[in-house]
């Protein structure tokens, strides 16, 4: 949590006090993109190298996957319905 807040605030403060030109902003965007891919690669490495996770996949993998799909569809669907309704109403 401290890391999340610290990194976000540091980036925000830098953007407030240092004016970047377009080229420097593009470099910043590229750093963001590349570090995203690095994060996903390292997450994949962590998941793939976890023996407990791999051992549980044959027995619980399909049930967990379908449950995750249901959860994702439920959260996206209800938010879509709720926000859509309110936008046409009070907002």
């Amino acid at each position: 949590m401290i890391l999340v807040a610290g990194a976000l605030i540091a980036g925000f403060v830098l953007a407030q006090f240092v004016k970047f030109n377009e080229k420097q902003k593009t470099v910043m965007d590229r750093i963001g993109e590349q570090s995203l891919l690095l994060l996903l690669l390292s997450m994949g490495l962590s998941l793939g190298s976890n023996p407990d996770l791999l051992a549980a996949l044959p027995s619980l993998g399909m049930q967990s996957f379908l449950l995750a799909v249901g959860i994702l569809v439920g959260s996206v669907g209800l938010t879509w319905l709720g926000v859509r309704g309110r936008r046409s109403g009070r907002d």
């Binding site: 976000l8 605030i9 980036g11 925000f12 953007a15 570090s35 994060l39």
Partner: peptide, 11 residues
């Protein structure tokens, strides 16, 4: 690094 870049975008 990524959150730093997001913070920068917000700023």
């Amino acid at each position: 690094l990524l959150l730093f870049a997001v913070g920068f975008q917000l700023g």
